[in-house]
Amino acid sequence: MLELRDITAGYDRREPVVRGASLTVAPGEAVGLLGPSGCGKSTLAKVAALLHRPAAGQVVIDGEPVNGWRHAAPRTLRTAVGVVFQQPRLSADPRLRLRELIAEPLRAVGRSRAEAAARALETAEAVGLTGELLGRRPHEVSDGQLQRACLARALVLRPSWLVCDEMTAMLDASTTAALVNVVEDYRREHRAGLLAVGHDRVLLDRWCDRTVEWSRIAQA
């Protein structure tokens, strides 16, 4: 289980943007979190991915409370939650070729160059990227192709949970459907849990097992 218990979070000493939010994602379950822009749902997504330290509350993964955040979080926990952000242009290091971008997490956890390259190629194929495209840098591909690469990077370590923060907000209908299919295939195969954060009710209802309203899980 990925549990968010009574999370309050904000930035510096300003007013918190998330107050008392609680949410649970079971293994194999897809949960949609629906809220208007600026409501703090992206911050909650970062807390769930262990990328932002909450001011109060607990994140519990498989019964084990998380105590460190960002680099201080144990690597096995960090890599157990994959994350995809809204804007592919900002989420990809502009200097890396797509194949390096996808292989980067494998290299970071110490896999050999050859193994990383092979697994990256496999994952790239799963998101529909092949051939010459993988040798390009982010500014040489379209938003849709780059977001495919970002999804591949999130899946390449085979995480047990996936957090998608407005993953498809910048994309056209066909690419949206394609990426959702990739996530769903992955989820079925690995019995992974999903937290999909977004503002499009039609999309989240179609994609997820259950959709919760931001106003239902957090205080105003």
């Binding site: 209908a173 066909s174 690419t175 459907a177 394609a178």
Partner: peptide, 19 residues
């Protein structure tokens, strides 16, 4: 037709392949 069918309120099926 494919583009329209990819909408979540319709078939939610992507067009195969990449542009």
């Amino acid at each position: 037709r494919g583009l329209l069918n990819a909408l979540p309120e319709r078939e939610f099926a992507p067009i195969p392949g990449l542009p």
